[in-house]
């Protein structure tokens, strides 16, 4: 038998599927959508942070409005409840002079069985310019970006466990304002990494900005498989994980983690992974304490720490507006170019 008869040099395996950037960047490398931090380069992240810096200065003045997006319509399409994120996106849009429409889908069409694509097409037909999307499913923002009409930008305001890029950017902005250079920093992200889109986006951003060391600290039941492949050092002991760090990012612990057997109790979690004043002393003396909010006091963080001198939690909220203004203005610029 001669097997070589069916060998065929012309048969080739195809290339793997499109990278995230083929969707979110234009051909000349500008932001068309903001779906994920993964795959963006350092220059682009710095450009976003620099742009945010100019808006931050403006936001501190008496007149807080610029006409950059006048006449544009931005739709906040939220399939999942959110107060803080939706409000800061709304404020950001208004300070750029855009018209804003808030659509809360969890109480309307999704219940009636209307498909995500139908919802999208209907709102799209109203000649809007940008969707800010939050959805409980990972990949929802990618899906919408893939199917949206050309000319419409999609900003991911959180998709499942996958990504929350503007949150990560505002965290980077906060860190940069206080610490400057990332390359010498040690950053610890503490808590429910498994379910956290915030943590995933932060890890990508910190690594792109060449942070000295990125640590994740959690019990094994709250760590995703092969998490080290994201470029982090894994700690299961909080004291060890906090040693000499310059930034601590605490994550919110959802109550349902107890119901699904990820943890025995809030009490035991706080004993082992709660950030207390005592533990904070293990970190560098000028360490920042961050939290994407809303914090569960006495579950993942002691009140004295959340409100203490190291905490920049409220600054994060303030900077969220500037960073979202930066991203909104940049994606609209890419479309106009």
């Amino acid at each position: 038998m001669n097997d070589s008869q069916i060998a065929h040099p012309g048969a080739r395996l195809p290339q793997p599927g499109p990278l995230p950037n083929r969707l979110q960047l234009t051909d000349d490398g500008q932001l068309r959508h903001m779906l994920t931090i993964e795959g963006l380069n350092r220059d682009l992240l710095n450009e976003i942070l620099d742009t945010a810096e100019s808006f931050a200065n403006m936001n501190e003045k008496a007149v807080k409005k610029v006409p950059l997006l006048r006449g544009k319509t931005i739709v906040n399409l939220f399939f999942e409840a959110s107060t803080r994120t939706r409000t800061t996106f709304e404020l950001a849009a208004k300070r750029l002079s855009a018209d804003v429409l808030n659509v809360n889908i969890s109480t309307s069409s999704a219940v009636k069985g209307e498909s995500l694509l139908d919802t999208l097409r209907n709102i799209e037909a109203m000649n809007v310019d940008m969707f800010v999307v939050r959805h409980e499913e990972s990949g929802a923002a990618h899906f919408i970006a893939r199917h949206v009409a050309p000319g419409i930008s999609v900003l991911n305001a959180g998709d499942g466990r996958h990504a929350h890029p503007t949150q990560a950017l505002l965290d980077m902005f906060t860190i940069r304002r206080h610490k400057g250079d990332f390359t010498k920093l040690k950053v610890a992200i503490v808590g429910d990494i498994l379910h956290s889109r915030v943590a995933r986006s932060q890890i990508h951003a910190l690594n792109i900005l060449q942070t000295g060391e990125v640590r994740v600290v959690a019990p094994c039941s709250l760590l995703p498989a092969d998490v080290d492949q994201l470029g982090v050092h894994v700690y299961n002991d909080l004291d060890a994980g906090l040693k000499d760090v310059d930034v601590i990012i605490m994550l919110r612990l959802q109550r349902e983690r107890m119901e699904h057997a990820h943890l025995p109790s809030e009490h035991e979690y706080y004993q082992l992974f709660g950030l207390t004043s005592r533990r904070l002393q293990l970190a560098h003396p000028t360490c920042l304490v961050m939290h994407p909010g809303p914090a569960n006091r006495g579950v993942e963080i002691e009140s004295a720490v959340a409100d203490g001198p190291h905490s920049v939690i409220l600054e994060q909220v303030t900077y969220g507006i500037s960073v979202r203004m930066a991203v909104m203005s940049m994606v609209m610029g890419a479309h106009q170019a």
Binding site: R200, P224, A225, D226, Q229, L230
Partner: peptide
């Protein structure tokens, strides 16, 4: 599949 790719994509994995 539960592994590095499911972690990256934030999709629930099947071990």
């Amino acid at each position: 599949h539960e592994g590095a790719v499911s972690t990256r994509l934030g999709l629930a994995g099947i071990p």
